[in-house]
């Protein structure tokens, strides 16, 4: 079988699944470019009447979706920074030093990764309420960091382990202190790994729903996914054209960023998972 022929077969076999994956995107794109009357009509078509961008403008300027995006951005950036700030030293210690109780610690982190925040949501809510942090973006930043950090530690660990220890030792012998060797030699080398981990954490935080829904109870603080879901709960007539525009805005940039790191996930993730 030639490669061309094989390609045809492969694409044909994949096409049903690809169709299902792309169907919602087509829906988002098509609907978000339509005007309201085009949706609530009997004779509907895939192609919008014209390339109407008014939905996006209305969403941002009238419905306050811009603020939801800003909230999401603030939370995701905050959670990424916080979880990396605690995960990098931890991952460094776990890969490079003798840590008493290392096995127990790794198992603990692994188990925390498997507990859904929603199982603990009642306790989580009460704790943040006790500190007066409900309805503060900070609570979600902290909660996201705690839940996504274990994964970050684990991803970073597998990257750190690929940097030969020799290099730091050479730096020490060359006269660098432990910190200086870390900054000048170790960090520049594992930067790609840190970037991938950061992006992954960012995307996870951006997409998280349940904790944001529960901890932020005012409309002005809603994150993008929460606000989108909230808009579908309107009693009267659901404004699908606006909602689809919102999902498009909130998902496409993230999807592009995510796609950029996908090749790092394959292999890295499986290896880490098995080892």
């Amino acid at each position: 079988m030639t490669k061309a022929k094989k390609s045809l077969v492969c694409w044909a076999l994949l096409s049903p699944f690809l169709l299902v994956v792309l169907f919602p995107y087509a829906t988002m794109l098509s609907t978000s470019l339509k005007q309201k009357d085009e949706i609530f009509t009997f004779h509907r078509t895939w192609l919008p009447r014209e390339l109407y961008l008014g939905n996006f403008a209305e969403l941002i300027f009238e419905k306050g979706f811009g603020r939801a995006l800003a909230n999401s951005l603030a939370i995701s950036v905050g959670a990424t920074v916080l979880s990396l700030a605690v995960a990098i030293p931890a991952a460094y210690a776990l890969t490079r030093m003798r840590v008493p109780g290392k096995g127990a610690l790794t198992n603990y982190l692994l188990i925390t990764q498997m507990i859904s925040p929603i199982v603990l949501i009642v306790g989580l809510f009460r704790m943040f309420a006790y500190f007066g942090l409900v309805n503060s973006l900070l609570s979600v930043i902290i909660a996201h960091s705690a839940f996504f950090m274990a994964f970050a530690v684990w991803m970073l660990q597998s990257y750190f382990a690929t940097i030969p220890k020799d290099l730091e030792e050479a730096a020490w012998i060359d006269g660098a202190g432990r910190f200086s060797a870390f900054i000048r030699v170790f960090l520049p080398l594992c930067l790609p790994g840190i970037v991938v981990t950061a992006i992954f954490t960012f995307v996870n935080s951006w997409n998280e729903y349940a904790m944001s829904l529960t901890l932020l109870r005012q409309v002005t603080q809603q994150t993008a996914p929460v606000q989108i879901a909230f808009l579908t709960g309107t009693l009267y007539q659901i404004e699908w054209h606006l909602i689809m525009a919102a999902t498009l805005l909130a998902s496409v940039p993230v999807a592009i960023v995510f796609a950029s790191i996908q090749r790092y996930l394959i292999g890295g993730m499986a290896l880490g998972g098995v080892k």
Partner: peptide, 11 residues
């Protein structure tokens, strides 16, 4: 194929 992973389950 990996695209659905990138998007919030809520969305």
């Amino acid at each position: 194929v990996l695209l659905p992973w990138a998007i919030s389950l809520a969305m």
